[in-house]
Structures are given as structure tokens and as C-alpha cells.
Amino acid sequence: MGRFDGKTAIVTGAAQGIGEGYARALAAEGANVVVADLNAELGETVAKQISSDGGTAVFKDVDVSDEESAKQLAEFTVEKFGGIDYLVNNAAIYGGMKLDLLITVPW
């Protein structure tokens, strides 16, 4: 029995690095995981590997700097798993932005 059995988690930026680590760890503890990222190829690979390792994971493309994309991610997750229990906001929206433009990103 895992600490997150029956719970659903979205992990943004989960196609690689720290986000991938969060996604794998949550799935290993029983969570249904939505691997959310702009990189569909890597994201699909992570979700498939989690599933083949015995966890439950799906991929959903998302651009966290786009409000509509974020809403679609939430709707997808609710439709797939019935709700959202946890959100790991790991994706960076400022990587290619100039520092002064960060304040222009809508909430």
C-alpha cells in the first residue's frame, strides 16, 4: 500500500529531470500521475515507462504559460481520473524570457 493510493497528481515539466523524478516517485507510491509537458516525445516515454513499471500514468501536453492549455490539462485530468488531489508546479515558464517580461505572463 502506497502513501498516495487512490490519489491523482499532475506533474508539470515531467518529461525529464526533477519533474520526471517527481512523477516516478508519486507513481511508485500509488498515485495516478499525469505527466504534463511541452515535449510530447519525452513525456509519452516517461508515462509509458511508469506504466510498464506497474504504475498508472498518462501524458498530456501542456504549455503552462497559456491559461487555456492549463485549463485543458485540468479538464483532461478530471475526465481521466475523476479529480485532482495534487499538483506539482515544476515546469518553468521563464526559461527563454527576459526577466522584465515575467510580469507580463497572465496568472
Rank of each mutant, 00 (worst) to 15 (best):
M1W: 11
G2S: 08
G2C: 01
K7D: 08
A9M: 05
V11R: 01
G13Y: 02
G13M: 05
A15K: 00
G17R: 10
I18F: 09
G19S: 02
G21A: 02
A23N: 05
A23M: 05
R24W: 05
R24L: 03
A27Y: 00
A28F: 05
G30I: 00
N32M: 10
V33T: 02
V34G: 00
V34H: 01
V35E: 01
V35N: 00
D37A: 00
D37S: 02
L38G: 11
A40Q: 12
A40G: 12
L42F: 10
G43F: 02
G43C: 07
K48H: 14
D53C: 10
G55E: 10
T56W: 08
A57T: 06
F59Q: 06
D61V: 11
D61Y: 14
V62T: 06
D63G: 07
D63Y: 03
V64D: 05
E67N: 13
E68G: 15
A70S: 14
Q72M: 13
Q72D: 15
L73S: 08
A74E: 15
A74I: 15
A74W: 10
T77D: 07
T77S: 03
T77F: 06
F81M: 06
G82L: 09
I84E: 01
I84L: 12
Y86Q: 09
Y86E: 12
L87M: 14
A92S: 15
I93W: 09
G95R: 15
G96D: 14
D100R: 13
D100K: 14
T104C: 14
T104E: 13
V105R: 11
